[in-house]
């Protein structure tokens, strides 16, 4: 499906954007250590700045996770139910993801509007900037979960894609 290809490209673009966020964050913290220890003139903005960057790339990455299916879950019920139940359980899960993502858009949007005119101390940016990623992530998650629901309904093997091996928790 061409729409699916577009969503794939969107997801990849978002993932690369998040990756740039991680690299820039590495630079900011290194700069903080350098300025404090070597120059003895700590920049005040680095702590808040790196946290802000992290929330952005986490929420962007989390949206990619919905499409790449790397969010961790436990299929306890699948051990006892017949395999034919799997697509139904997955569909319920995707609906839940869609619902919560919709909440992220709605309530995240409210947070953005409420805190548009207050400022983050030291950074000086509107507080809304910390809440903005929730909204963007929510929109992406809505799209990606809807895509999964439709593809599954059309008989595509969306549930058989293996989880990415580069995920290493613990």
């Amino acid at each position: 499906m061409p729409i699916s290809r577009v969503l794939g490209q969107l997801s990849n673009a978002v993932l690369y954007l998040a990756g740039i966020g991680l690299v820039v964050m590495t630079g900011i913290v290194a700069y903080q250590v350098f300025m404090r220890f070597v120059i003895n003139a700590s920049p005040a903005w680095t702590e808040a700045g790196s946290i802000m960057l992290m929330t952005w790339f986490i929420f962007l990455g989390a949206a990619v996770g919905v499409r790449e299916n790397f969010h961790m879950g436990f299929d306890v019920l699948l051990y006892v139910l017949p395999p034919s139940a799997k697509p139904w359980l997955r569909a319920i899960s995707d609906l839940c993801v869609f619902g919560f993502a919709f909440g992220m858009v709605f309530f995240g949007g409210e947070l953005v509007i409420r805190y548009w005119s207050t400022r983050i101390p030291v950074l000086g940016l509107p507080t809304a900037f910390t809440y903005f990623p929730i909204v963007i992530s929510g929109v992406l998650m809505c799209l990606f979960s809807l895509e999964r629901l439709l593809m599954r309904a059309a008989g595509e093997p969306v549930d058989d894609v293996p989880t990415d091996p580069t995920i290493t928790e613990a």
């Binding site: 991680l22 961790m72 580069t166 995920i167 928790e169």
Partner: peptide, 20 residues
Amino acid sequence: FIHSVLGAVRTTAMVLFIIG
């Protein structure tokens, strides 16, 4: 290098989204 960056982003996003 790019694989490392993207892998770290995926893992971090998964873990920290749960933390949130």
